[in-house]
Design a protein around this nucleic acid. Structure first.
Lengths: 193, 193, 193, 193
DNA sequence: AAGTAATCGAGACGGTACGTCATGTCTTACC
DNA sequence: GGTAAGACATGACGTACCGTCTCGATTACTT
């Protein structure tokens, strides 16, 4: 969340808290995670957490952000073959979602977002939004080559691509493997034509 | 959840608990819902809840089940026009999801499913599964008329239909209206061809 | 307590309850003794206990009564030598009080008597009273031989004899052995002259 | 009880708890006294009680200690006339025991001591012991004047003095008035010669 | 270099809810 | 009708965390 960065904040404590939060959410899951446990594990006073983060969710969110390479290039490949590019992207998405290290915090995030509007906004704007924007950019380019219909609503289009994957992941409806990624990519490309 | 059915369980208490849970989850939301409040509202001892349900989530789940017409005909319409049928179904789905009365418990359910495997199974088997099966049946019929390709994996196909809607709903990515339902239906039908 | 003796009372259950109570009070002590545990140990419904006894204390009291030879001859020996007779009696009293098997129920009794007037009355009339009466009888006889002064209040006198022993036992002020019994007997006899 | 004195304990809370405990034990009696009620009356969290006292009994004990002038001069009068001095002391003892305000907590204490060894020790060392010591000191002085035999065991002697009173009080064997105090004093002095 | 103010660790505080236990009442089915 | 079994409403238990608060003790800027 990183509310603000005042002069005298202890970076050491911040790191310890984020690290402890990341460890603990993986160990016990989000619902059983407590601020007290984070403070204890981080060797930090509770107040230091309350001073800088508004909620448990915010801490975990920050911990997840720290754990990600925020600088990563989000843009999708553009080889001119939309189907191939989507297959590639979805295979990556699917692999990440199947990764056990991502599961606990990922689900926690989804959960927390449901009851914390501030967090939800943060999530949409800082994590999800940029990714969806990148996908839309690729589809826009595909519209120019004619691979995607001109009248297709791109907001709906990106949801057609990632929605099914997210759905299967969250509700554990089936395996998240390359075959699945390819199938979704195939149906999507066909639909967008 | 209805774990087991020993001897003589008080039906009156069961109804009161389920009713109170449904009311309270709508009033305060799932995270702020407490067993004590349910017991108090239902005029029931806490132990009576703990005796029959393993967790808060299980109670709310049961409450939701009770609130639904379980006998309802799940099968999709089959007018011979797949696109029209899907539009109809998705409009209904979207309307339900936009309904404020469904929001709180619906999100609560999704949330709770993430950390309770028993509940998750129950959810998939008793609520989600039948609905997806009904959709698959309609698609299978569409395969016979040629509206859907023979080699399309129907599991993936149903996720292509409902996944995007669920995605938009859960992450609040945009409005859930008829236009959106139609757009999703359109793209899906095109993809499945 | 034995409230009443209606026709169809199960003697088998009564015995089982009293036995279980006696065992349990020795095992866990009176404060941790529960009606449920007694019922379970006795293989009896809780209601059967509630039907026949008004309180936990009453059950234990009855159990203790059953455990004692109620028919025993309470009268003190009268050899003509009061000091010797008292030594004998007090040695017996002291030995009983030091007996581990008597400790738990004995203390429980004392405890329970404090807050249950009915029980207290029962205790004084059925257990304590007869014993004190017997001692008074012996002292009365001693008054005739001149070993005890004519103007001595015998109620006070018996309390001078048993009070110190009870005091030392209840508050664990020191060992309860023959030497102590003899010392008390000696001082008492001297005082009563 | 005052288990330990770490860091910064709230004196205000301590007083409120002790006060509430004293009031409540007088109102409802020890067996019906609950920690929750004490906390509520004191305007304090339950945890604050559990943090500093190990049991309900310990709280009440502390409350009683606070209610007593701990600084009081315990030593018995020494006018040179043992009988007169003992009469005086026993009249005081008897009056205190007959005082309704002392009854409930006094009996509670006795009761609680039976099942809590820690409390029992505390009681013997901090309340009872000093009083008995004071009495022994007076008797020792009497041994020098010849009023008490040289070979009398003073531990037994003090029990001969207070035991009967305690016995009559606890088991409600008779009135606790001046006449009784005098009778006990008289018999005791005669015995100790 | 000393003064000073924000931050830190620690943890006590008033609370809420937890999940468990025992109470005493009740209902059912058996004998 | 008494019984074993056990569900029920009640209410206290002792524990876990909540979010706030105070306490020195650093610590890094200011003067």
């Amino acid at each position: 969340m990183t509310v603000k960065q005042p002069a005298r904040r202890s970076e050491r404590s911040r790191q310890a808290i984020l690290g402890a939060a990341a460890e603990l959410v993986a160990e016990v899951g989000f619902p059983k995670l407590t601020i007290e446990a984070i403070a204890a594990r981080a060797g930090v006073g509770k107040q230091t957490i309350y001073r800088w983060w508004p909620s448990k969710g915010a801490v975990v969110f920050d911990a997840m952000l720290s754990g990600m390479s925020e600088d990563g290039d989000l843009s999708l490949p553009d080889t001119g073959d939309l189907a191939a590019d989507l297959r590639l992207v979805l295979r990556g998405t699917v692999a990440e979602m199947a990764d056990p290290a991502f599961q606990a915090p990922g689900r926690a995030m989804t959960t927390e977002i449901q009851s914390d509007p501030v967090l939800a906004r943060e999530y949409r704007e800082r994590l999800l939004g940029p990714n969806l924007e990148a996908a839309k950019a690729r589809l826009r380019s595909a519209q120019e080559t004619g691979e995607v219909g001109r009248n297709v609503d791109l907001d709906v289009a990106v949801e057609m691509i990632f929605g099914p994957v997210y759905y299967r992941w969250l509700l554990r409806l089936g395996p998240l493997d390359d075959a699945y990624a390819d199938a979704v990519a195939g149906l999507a490309v066909a639909g967008l034509r």
